[in-house]
C-alpha cells in the first residue's frame, strides 16, 4: 500500500510538469502585449517596457521562464505577481474560499439529488418515476451549463424571486442557484449511473440470497444492493469534484461570483498570464491529489481491490 502511494506520488511529477507546461505555453502565446496595454492609450517609454520585461523574466527563452516560475512555486510557494505588483498567492487566498464553498454546495446537491433520483429510478424501474428521471436527466445532460444557469436565473431568480441571481452579498443563500447550475450535469450522471448499477445489483445472486435470508425489502436494497452500487458513484463524485473546478469558470462568470473560476476568466481577458498559470497549477495539483485519494477510497470501499 505504502509502495503504491509512493509510486503514485512520483507520478505527480511528470503529470504536473506536463500540464503546467502546456498552460504556460498557451498563456504566453496569447496575442497582444499585456505590458504595453498597461499604460492604456498612451505609449509607454521603451526603457520602461524593457525594465518590466526584465523584471518578469520575459526576455528569457520560454523554457527558462517556465523553469524559473516553477522553481519559485515549489521552493518558495511563490506563484508570481501580477503586472500591478499584487502577489498571485494573495488573489488565490482571497478567491479560493468562495469557490470551495460553491463547490461544496454543488457536491452536496448532486450527492443528495443524484443518489435519491438514482435509487428511485433503479428500484421502480420502468415505472412513472423512473421515466421521469430518465427523461429529465437526458434534458439536463443535453443542455449546456450556460443554458441551465440562465434558466435558473430566469425562473427561480426573476420570475419566482426565490433566490438571488448574482453576487454573494446575501450570504450562503446566494450560492444555491450557482451550485445547482454547477452540479446539474453531474447530478444527472450520478442518477443514471446509480440507476443502472442498482438495476444490475438487484438482479444479482447476492441480492437474491439476501431476500432468501428473509430480510425486509428495504434492508435488501439498502444493505446489499446499494452498498455495491454506490462504489462507482462515490468514486465518480470524488473525481468529479476536481472537474467541477473547471466548471466554476463558466458558472462564476454568469453569477458574478468572486471566486477562483471567475478570476481565471477575468485574468485571461486581461492577459494576466501569471495569474492564470498560478491558479491552473494549483488546480492541477488539486486534481492529481484528489485522483489519488479517490483510488485509495476505492480500495477501502471494495475489499476485492488491492494495491500491492
Amino acid at each position: 500500500m505504502t509502495q503504491y502511494i509512493i509510486r503514485r506520488l512520483l507520478q505527480f511529477i511528470p503529470v504536473t510538469i506536463f500540464a503546467t507546461l502546456i498552460v504556460y505555453w498557451l498563456v504566453f502565446s496569447m496575442p497582444g502585449d499585456p505590458i504595453r496595454a498597461l499604460s492604456g492609450d498612451r505609449p509607454m517609454p521603451e526603457a520602461q517596457v524593457e525594465a518590466i520585461r526584465e523584471q518578469y523574466n520575459l526576455n528569457d527563452p520560454f523554457l527558462v521562464q517556465y523553469a524559473k516560475y516553477m522553481w519559485g512555486v515549489f521552493t518558495q510557494g511563490d506563484f508570481g505577481t501580477t503586472f500591478q505588483g499584487r502577489p498571485v498567492l494573495d488573489i488565490i487566498q482571497q478567491t479560493l474560499p468562495t469557490t470551495l464553498t460553491l463547490a461544496a454546495f454543488a457536491f452536496v446537491f448532486q450527492g443528495i439529488i443524484g443518489i435519491i433520483a438514482g435509487i428511485l429510478s433503479g428500484v421502480y424501474k420502468d415505472r412513472f418515476i423512473d421515466r421521469l428521471v430518465q427523461v429529465s436527466t437526458v434534458v439536463v445532460v443535453a443542455l449546456p451549463t450556460l443554458a441551465i444557469a440562465f434558466l435558473l436565473q430566469l425562473v427561480f431568480g426573476l420570475n419566482l424571486g426565490l433566490f438571488p441571481i448574482a453576487g454573494i452579498q446575501q450570504g450562503l443563500v446566494s450560492y444555491i442557484l450557482p451550485a445547482i447550475a454547477l452540479g446539474a450535469v453531474s447530478t444527472a450522471m450520478i442518477a443514471r449511473m446509480l440507476r443502472s448499477e442498482l438495476i444490475e445489483a438487484l438482479q444479482s445472486d447476492y441480492v437474491r440470497t439476501a431476500t432468501a435470508k428473509g430480510l425486509k425489502r428495504g434492508r435488501v436494497i439498502g444493505r446489499h444492493g446499494l452498498r455495491n452500487s454506490l462504489i462507482p458513484v462515490v468514486t465518480f463524485m470524488g473525481a468529479d469534484l476536481a472537474t467541477m473546478m473547471g466548471g466554476t469558470i463558466v458558472v462564476e462568470s454568469i453569477f458574478n461570483i468572486p471566486g477562483l473560476g471567475g478570476q481565471i476568466f477575468r485574468s485571461i481577458q486581461a492577459q494576466e498570464g501569471t495569474v492564470v498559470v498560478g491558479i491552473v497549477t494549483l488546480l492541477v495539483l488539486f486534481y492529481v491529489t484528489l485522483n489519488l485519494l479517490v483510488d485509495l477510497l476505492y480500495a477501502v470501499l471494495d475489499p476485492r481491490i488491492r494495491y500491492d
Binding site: D205, R208, T209, A212, K216, N228, P303
Partner: peptide
C-alpha cells in the same frame, strides 16, 4: 412469508461466490 424465509425454510445456492455479497 418473509418470516419463514431463512428461518424455517432456507436455501443454499449453486455458486457461492456470486451468492455471497462480495463487499461484506
Amino acid at each position: 412469508r418473509r418470516k419463514l424465509r431463512g428461518v424455517n425454510i432456507s436455501m443454499i445456492f449453486q455458486d457461492a461466490l456470486s451468492a455471497l455479497n462480495p463487499v461484506l
